[in-house]
Write a protein that binds this DNA or RNA. Structure first.
Lengths: 206, 206
DNA sequence: ACCTGAACACCGTTCAAGT
DNA sequence: ACCTGAACACCGTTCAAGT
């Protein structure tokens, strides 16, 4: 006999929890059924199959990624603030970055931010294709950065790593400060802000 | 009775072909065995297991990614040329980008390019942490760009896509050229060069 | 040293049968 | 309308047994 009636919402909830905690690999239909206390096949009635279950989860969180409010005095500052806000939002949902990315929904997720960026580029005096290119440059940079960053976090130790390479004496003699800097792990926060700022300044005031 | 003696090299070869043609998902131990005309378990004797087989494949191609020769008159031009060369190399091995990325070997793969970039930053007069930051900014931008680009190619149609969004009349009235530009798919070649150039110019001459 | 088939513990999915 | 267990066709991996 069934427990209290199973709903689609309930399935999505449990699946979401599984993904958030242990990643999409942990979401097997059998494990999900066990979690819910139902037969595996009941899930199929509610969500179709595993693939569309994941689709639904991704869809849901893309919509959760709400509006971005730019802050700062100059357009350049506000663009940087949008980029930073976006990065933070993406980083709060690590497993979902990957899933959204895999499903090619990055664009969709980016639409509100894109509109904000267009507004700022206009305020900075850019129009037409120039403005469009600037918006996309920032967009690519942010998403790309977060992807690379995530990747680095997932695999913290590399061998031979940058450290070992830049330890060698010849380079150190030429520029010991650089050798030390590259031997240290990158400071993503700092690097991100610096990169975006550099890109934006080049795009905006020319 | 066994066919001609199976070698580790032979296994890697067949596995590599499978991955290049149909992606890592197509590389199942059973299919690989069928391709080689051996028992599934023979493969285990030569390569351990599926995971280390993939590791070996990735390792191999990371090493294939040879030296980069910068071209151009100014350091900035040469940095851009390194970035473009890197992008091309990455794009020639689409499935491997993903695998290298998943395994966190992006750093390793980047070492030769990193050294080239350091050289150019020095030539441009940057030292120490400034130079290190500039190198990493370029590095992140290239890898990030290629990841985003790959993603876009894999899922060409999005709905609602950028096109539909930027079709609406209000935006078009304000800046029809921009609306048209964003409604078109991005031209990655152009966008990439423009972005790198913008970033580099901001990093180098300040 | 190298290869084998059988077996184990997993998958996602389908389907006829229940209520 | 919703749930069920049995069954199918897949996985990766282990292992004892062969040569």
């Amino acid at each position: 006999m069934p427990r209290t009636a199973l709903t689609r919402e309930e399935v999505l909830e449990a699946a979401g929890a599984l993904v958030r905690q242990h990643g999409p690999g942990a979401l097997t239909m059998r494990r999900l059924a066990a979690e819910l206390g139902t037969a595996v096949t009941s899930i199929y009635w509610h969500v179709g199959n595993r693939e569309s279950l994941l689709d639904a989860l991704v869809e849901r969180t893309v919509q959760e990624m709400g509006a971005i409010r730019p802050v700062g005095r100059t357009p350049a500052q506000r663009v940087v603030s949008v980029a930073r806000g976006l990065r933070r939002e993406l980083r709060e949902r690590p497993h979902l970055i990957a899933m959204v990315h895999e499903r090619g929904l990055t664009e969709r997720m980016f639409l509100p931010a894109q509109q904000a960026l267009v507004h700022e580029m206009h305020a900075a005096g850019l129009r037409g294709t120039r403005a469009a290119e600037a918006v996309r440059a920032v967009q690519f940079q942010v998403v790309g950065f977060v992807l690379v960053e995530r990747n680095r976090e997932r695999s913290p130790v590399q061998s031979p790593g940058e450290g070992e390479l830049w330890d060698d004496a010849t380079t150190a003699e030429h520029d010991p400060a650089l050798a030390r800097a590259l031997a240290r792990p990158a400071d993503p926060e700092r690097l991100f802000t610096a990169s975006v700022r550099a890109l934006v300044s080049a795009l905006v005031d020319t």
